Amino acid sequence: MTGETGESDRTAALHRPFVSRKGRIAAWAMGIGQFLAIGAWALMLPWSGPTSVGLTDRLSMMGVAVFIGWGMSRFGGVRATPTEDGLKVRNILLTRTLSWSEIEDVHYSGSAPWVSLATTDGDPVAVMAIQRADGEPAQKEAERLARLVAHHHRSS
């Protein structure tokens, strides 16, 4: 029984989601910071006089701040979520779900900013959740992803 528990613990550890640590912190900090800066700027501009700014312009400024904040939230939300069936990769704009049999290899080399998956259809898939900016932890996560792919290839 202990052996089964140990194996299921290792499998569960392999299946933890992949998320960028530094990328997430930087994206959320920039998103919140720019929103506060643009909001303060919109409030401090003069309401009357020769250089006055009207309500429509202020609301437009806040709309731009919301749009930039949404973009930063997409940067902060990149992740790769493994399941028993495959890997769901959420990058900035696109989310793609791959079955384990579609993933041929995991690449993370020298100057690459993030992990790339070689797929059976020949279309590489970036996994931005494992980024070089995270340093040594990113290397370990790339190795974990490679072990996970190998685990599912052996299982099938």
Rank of each mutant, 00 (worst) to 15 (best):
M1Q: 11
T2C: 05
E4F: 06
E7R: 15
D9Q: 13
D9H: 08
T11D: 13
T11R: 15
A12T: 10
A12N: 12
A12G: 08
L14R: 08
R16A: 11
F18H: 03
S20L: 00
S20E: 03
K22T: 07
I25R: 14
I25E: 05
A26P: 01
A26G: 05
A27H: 07
A29E: 03
G31P: 06
G31A: 10
I32W: 12
A37E: 10
I38H: 13
G39I: 04
A40C: 13
A40I: 08
L43N: 13
L45Y: 05
P46A: 11
P46Y: 08
S48T: 11
G49N: 12
S52Y: 09
L55E: 14
M61Y: 09
M62W: 08
M62I: 11
G63P: 07
G69H: 02
S73G: 02
S73I: 00
F75K: 01
F75Y: 12
G76F: 02
G76N: 05
G77N: 09
V78T: 11
V78H: 01
V78S: 06
V78M: 15
R79E: 11
A80K: 02
A80S: 04
T81P: 03
T81I: 14
D85R: 12
G86H: 04
L87M: 06
K88A: 10
N91H: 08
L93H: 13
S99Y: 00
S101L: 03
E102D: 09
I103M: 05
V106F: 09
S109N: 14
W114H: 09
W114E: 05
V115F: 05
L117P: 00
T119Q: 02
T120D: 07
T120M: 01
D121V: 00
D123P: 00
P124Q: 02
V125G: 05
A126E: 02
M128G: 12
Q131P: 12
P137V: 04
K140F: 06
K140P: 01
K140A: 15
R144P: 03
L145F: 07
L145T: 06
R147M: 10
L148T: 03
A150N: 07
A150F: 02
H152L: 01
H153G: 06
H153W: 01
S155Y: 01
S155P: 00
